[in-house]
Design a protein around this nucleic acid. Sequence first.
DNA 1: ATTCAGGCTGGGCATATGTCAAGCACCTGA
DNA 2: TCAGGTGCTTGACATATGCCCAGCCTGAAT
Lengths: 327, 327
Amino acid sequence: MKSSRIDEVGRWSSEELLLRAAWFYYKDELTQDEIAKRLSLSRASVGRLLDRARRVGLVSIQLDTEYLNAFELSAELRRVFRLTEALVVPDHDKEPADHHAINARVGLGGAQFLSTHLRPGGSLGVGWGETVSRVIAGTNFGTVGPVHMVTLTGGVDGYLPTIVSFKGETANADQATTAAVIPAPIHASSPELAAALRQEPTIQQVLKHACEVDQAVVGVGTPTLDATIAQLGYMNADDVRILAEHKIVGDILGQFFDANGVVADLPLHDRRIGIELADLKQIPKVVGVAGGMHKAEAILGALRGGYLDVLVTNEIAAIRLLELEAT
Amino acid sequence: MKSSRIDEVGRWSSEELLLRAAWFYYKDELTQDEIAKRLSLSRASVGRLLDRARRVGLVSIQLDTEYLNAFELSAELRRVFRLTEALVVPDHDKEPADHHAINARVGLGGAQFLSTHLRPGGSLGVGWGETVSRVIAGTNFGTVGPVHMVTLTGGVDGYLPTIVSFKGETANADQATTAAVIPAPIHASSPELAAALRQEPTIQQVLKHACEVDQAVVGVGTPTLDATIAQLGYMNADDVRILAEHKIVGDILGQFFDANGVVADLPLHDRRIGIELADLKQIPKVVGVAGGMHKAEAILGALRGGYLDVLVTNEIAAIRLLELEAT
DNA sequence: ATTCAGGCTGGGCATATGTCAAGCACCTGA
DNA sequence: TCAGGTGCTTGACATATGCCCAGCCTGAAT
């Protein structure tokens, strides 16, 4: 038994073993038992191998874009808001789920979108927020080929560690897929500090790249205390009050806008580090990822402002958006 | 029970239902039981839905290109034969499997390659043969976006019906993905007829397009009676004898070449309808798909002739190729 | 050399999945 | 209207998978 394992398995590296197991299972549709026999290990080990293969992203499951677009709500969103594409992830429960769960689900939708629409060798601007971070975490860059990622704002210290950390996860992806990160928070503690940071050559350079990416993925935030941006301390109750006075409905990349998507003139913006929404508009394909009933008004503002070319959202938000726009 | 099914499920089209089930299962990782509950149908039905979703290609499973390339044999093939890429599909059994099984497996590999390397809006030349037909059948064009396919030779009446038939399978794929087919067999019954067919404007036009595709997928055949081309009656025992006299090792698109990949001057070629191997060389990325011990010499000839930029083969053939080249 | 921690392995059980035969509703043609 | 057929549902069963636990090996610290 042991000798046979050395003969059979021993000469393969751990990665080759993973690959073999995954191929046998997902392509040849062998059962775990059969794989175990052929590889001379226990079925449990094969199960563990497959588990690992899924975790590291060796295997990825995608749904057909055609079908996704055939979803009725998707077609309506495209028509009503003149979007290039719209992806609506179906909800299962009627009752409102918690924000994090929604973000995770919609993030998966964003990942699905990127996985099928990213072009190798292209550049991808990465926005800020929990949902975006979910998107990046869920996207399998290995299947899509080398991509150059650039952050569109500061805020690496918040929700974006996945970008940096993912490089080590896959075997040698770092050769291919690169990431340029703005080394600053999204909001500095004072306007002066923000201005100083914006002058930094390293930051300036990334900002310049950020304006030139061919695709970008951004979240849409709400002007409330439970928003991630507030939870992380970039915004306090006073700020929220001011936002309410200005009739702000939401933000993208930390820039707040009203129901028509017009960016307001706010003190908060002076402390911000990142590209402007005007710059964002110049990016050929901007993918907005946001879901949940509570974000409907914010998303609507973003759509009216024309910042998004593609929207990834969930069912309930899509329905609400169409209701709001119909009235 | 019945009324609830009408309420819940009745208003969704069959396709939306399919999509929902697939999303819940593959993205949200719900169990079939949970999906059944939420969709108000039986678990068995959900199972059937998922089965259908897989069959029509709504869901597709891909392996990470990085890992595939990390496979040791793949790296060696690339190095030794100076290929852009090489995909080696692992074998499970030592004993030689039957040709059809090998073609199916390697074809799946080709499909995996195309799925991750096709570019939407691009054009794909499609060669002739059982393996190529497997590749096309296994490739999910829905996930990759619109592709324009062109046949590189005649022979639709033989092994290529999948190209035509697949259009009806997916919902509205025909809008996006197109296919131009040379309406002729790969070998006409006489040189005169072949010449006449080659003059046909419709055929000429497709041939012209065929030379201009940016990618192509072709098989590699052997000069033997059990080859598909012979089985379908395009070649008889006499032809095979002549091929042997000319020291032919294999063919691509019905053009036969020797161990160095040099195309021989054969009467058989006068009856052929399709682009020349010289034209094939001009295509930026030519993917060769062929596997099995018995095809090693043929593949080696093709590689020496420099016709292929990418090779998809199986393990045993890869090992044999490297052995042959080493001596 | 010894001991301990950590990680991996294989067995066994609970759960999830694939599949079959029987039954039911709906459609069709007489 | 009714008999027969078609296709879908259901429940039950066989199989496959996920998961936990105890045992083993390995490597490091003492």
